[in-house]
Amino acid sequence: MSKLVLARILQGIPVLLIVVTATFFLVRAAPGGPFDAERSLPAEVVKNLEKRYNLDAPVLHQYVDYLGNLVRGDFGPSFRYPNRSVTELIRTGMPITFELAFYAIVVAVVVGVMSGLIAAVRPNSLQDYLPMSLAMTGICLPAFLLGPILVLIFGIWLEWLPVSGWGYSPGDKILPSVTLGSAYAAYIARLTRAGMLEVLSQDFIRTARAKGLSMPGVVFRHALRGGLAPVVAFSGPAVAGLLTGSFVVETIFQIPGLGRFYVQAAFNRDYTMIMGTTILLSCLIVILNIVVDILAVWMNPRLRKVR
């Protein structure tokens, strides 16, 4: 097991290095620079700015400098927000995005697994079709549509919940979490249903039943662990997706998370910020994949033997 973990971590390092290098050169190759604006600046001002941010050095030189700083944990100053360092921007936005993603994953797992179970116990009946069609709708409805619909119903018509904000008024975290979580809830519902159907048809379930175990006992003690394997495999990329994909929800609900910075940085050609967020998110994806691999092995003893 520890060998597996170590191998995975070592595999992650070159991946990160490739990501850093590719991003570094790609953002600089993209047309337009961080200081291009509607009003073009006098040449002398541009010169002053480039000198200030080390952009007048050869690109390779900049790259080496950047890697040097990176090793020391310094992401540099943001070009767009001159009085903030990239580290500070990330430190402010990340906890909020994490919190949002956490609630969203809770929504996704609770709703998804529940409706998947409900559907799986009676396949091809109304009890199956109803949650599954809802799930299909959930997958098809993008957040930028679902969000405003929920806001319209619960925020504007019913006046139950605030239409925006994060932690400023009671209940303002509910709509964003539901919006972000629902697409994933839908996937998880379908995966749970498929997984459960497969497990429930196996011999050991019948044995457990034959020995007199109650059905809830069978489902929760024996079937669930195997039936949720596909869900666990999916959850790693899903968490990564929640973290990187929160931009739309953050924008709709006016949440000061990392997603907004990430996307704005790309539009602003805020080189250091693009690098910082990309590195952070790639690290997360690598780590999450490792965690999922470990979980999968833990949940499925057969994988252990293969290794």
Partner: peptide
């Protein structure tokens, strides 16, 4: 309030924020 999304801004106005 820095609000990038003008639809969000309009909704906030509509609900008295």
């Amino acid at each position: 309030y820095p609000i990038d999304n003008i639809q969000t801004e309009e909704r906030m106005f509509r609900t008295g924020a």
